[in-house]
Amino acid sequence: MSSVVYKSIIKVADKFVPAKLVPLWNHPAGPKTIFFWAPTFKWALVIAGIGDLQRPPEKLSAYQSTALAATGIIWSRYSMVIIPKNYNLLMVNIFVGATGIYQLIKIYNYRTGLKKQQTQSE
């Protein structure tokens, strides 16, 4: 049922796509496919990660940041192996990985600073 609705929407939308955007529209990883929409919605993770940049390091989760960094790195590699090449997937995963790595560095620096304070106070 949903496939029929989706195909109907695409058929109507095909008429309104400007000539310059037709190659992108018809690309194997273009807006007509899940290969476009899945990474597009994944940008919400990047936005959330950027929102967390202002969060104090004691409130950050090392486990969550590790998971984001690892998935960003793994899926960045995967996006270059699959056919069709999906540069939207590549970019979103680079940013997911980068925000995860940045948060991990922030957590590490915070915890290292705490240990230094403890040893100085003893």
Rank of each mutant, 00 (worst) to 15 (best):
M1Q: 08
S3L: 13
V4M: 04
Y6M: 10
Y6N: 07
S8N: 09
S8F: 09
S8L: 09
I9G: 08
I9V: 15
I9C: 11
I9F: 13
I9A: 13
I10W: 07
I10Q: 11
I10D: 05
K11H: 09
V12Q: 08
V12Y: 09
D14C: 07
D14Y: 04
D14M: 07
D14G: 05
K15Y: 07
K15V: 12
F16E: 04
F16Y: 13
F16R: 05
F16D: 02
F16S: 09
F16P: 02
V17Q: 07
P18G: 09
A19E: 11
L21N: 11
V22T: 11
P23E: 05
N26L: 14
H27L: 04
P28R: 01
A29V: 02
G30R: 01
K32T: 03
K32G: 01
K32P: 01
K32H: 03
I34S: 11
F35Y: 13
F36L: 03
W37M: 08
W37E: 04
A38Q: 11
A38W: 08
P39K: 00
P39T: 00
T40E: 00
W43E: 05
W43M: 14
A44P: 00
I47P: 02
I47G: 07
G49Y: 02
I50N: 04
I50E: 04
I50M: 12
G51C: 12
L53V: 12
L53P: 01
P56V: 13
P56G: 10
P56S: 12
P57S: 06
K59S: 14
L60Q: 11
L60M: 13
L60I: 10
L60S: 06
S61N: 08
S61G: 10
Y63E: 09
Y63I: 14
S65N: 14
A67D: 03
L68C: 14
A69L: 12
A70W: 07
A70H: 04
A70R: 05
G72C: 08
G72F: 00
W75D: 05
W75I: 11
W75N: 13
S76T: 15
S76H: 04
S76I: 06
R77Y: 14
R77S: 11
R77A: 14
Y78V: 15
M80Q: 10
M80S: 10
I82T: 11
I82R: 06
I83E: 08
P84H: 01
P84I: 02
P84T: 02
N86A: 05
N86R: 04
N88D: 04
N88I: 00
L89N: 05
L90H: 06
L90C: 06
L90S: 06
M91P: 03
I94S: 04
F95T: 10
G97Y: 01
G97C: 09
G100S: 03
G100W: 00
I101R: 03
Y102N: 07
Q103M: 14
L104P: 00
K106M: 05
I107C: 01
Y108S: 10
N109Q: 13
N109D: 09
R111P: 00
T112F: 12
T112Q: 13
G113P: 02
L114R: 13
K115V: 12
K116N: 13
Q117D: 14
T119A: 10
Q120T: 14
Q120P: 03
E122L: 14
E122V: 15
